[in-house]
Design a binder for these strands. Structure first.
Lengths: 122, 122
DNA sequence: AGGCATGTTGCCTGAGGACTGCTACAATCG
DNA sequence: CGATTGTAGCAGTCCTCAGGCAACATGCCT
């Protein structure tokens, strides 16, 4: 009943919109800078693409570039694997299989041991 | 100078061929069981697809099925992320970013601490 | 030798993805 | 008010992917 469209949280679009606004760009301004039409950008931000899926990886790339954002963050929101991550994963697959099989809580604790930082309250 | 074709080690094709032979299938026997033409299978095994890339995820799936192989293993060889892994990664992206940024040796040691040993025969 | 099963390769095509490029419309604002 | 902005629909384009097909080579068996 819901291929996507309604109800889906849409983190990517929201993030892009926020970035765009923070730069003071309108859709019509930004579009040519990343080489697409403004109406397409609108659809991206609202997660209203004709088909089901994300915009191309290369568009994400250009957006990160122009909006001076963290490319990997955007890639992940669009459900693309950043290159560096992909390399590591496919290089040591079993290792990551082990990790993904861990219960989330344990995984989190393991990582927090490695990397102390990362807290919530500001 | 080398889009791919030559020199690439081709782990996926080799693995599929091994599995196929171990089941005593010829290309022509196996092909209909996974719903593709035998010549396409040959290309898959030899990594001679027209373009650069892997066969479809769904073909990998059917191959794992028919050949009674570990699906995730094949998916990873074909550079597809197994669903479970993808879910975890996109669910907790920063966590995996941290992990992939670790030097390989450290990552390995961390994991081996979690999972004692992959070791040993029954 | 012939025949047949097997594997390899090059060209071809159909479907779908990633957009373009309009157009029209509603809301906002200065 | 007019100008700017965002939303939406839809036809049409271009390209890549995934696989099909026919022809070819090679081996093996009696």
């Amino acid at each position: 009943m819901n291929t996507k469209a309604e109800s889906r949280t849409n983190a990517l679009g929201d993030r892009i919109r926020a970035l765009r606004k923070s730069k003071g760009y309108s859709l019509r301004k930004l579009a040519p800078l990343v080489g697409v039409g403004f109406s397409y950008l609108s659809k991206v931000e609202n997660d209203r693409l004709d088909f089901d899926g994300s915009p191309s990886e290369s568009l994400i790339h250009r957006l990160a570039d122009v909006l001076e954002a963290d490319e990997d963050e955007l890639l992940l929101l669009a459900r693309y694997l950043p290159q560096a991550m992909a390399d590591r994963i496919f290089e040591q697959p079993e290792l990551f299989r082990t990790l993904t099989e861990l219960p989330p809580s344990k995984l989190t604790s393991v990582v927090s041991r490695i990397k102390p930082r990362k807290r919530s309250p500001k």
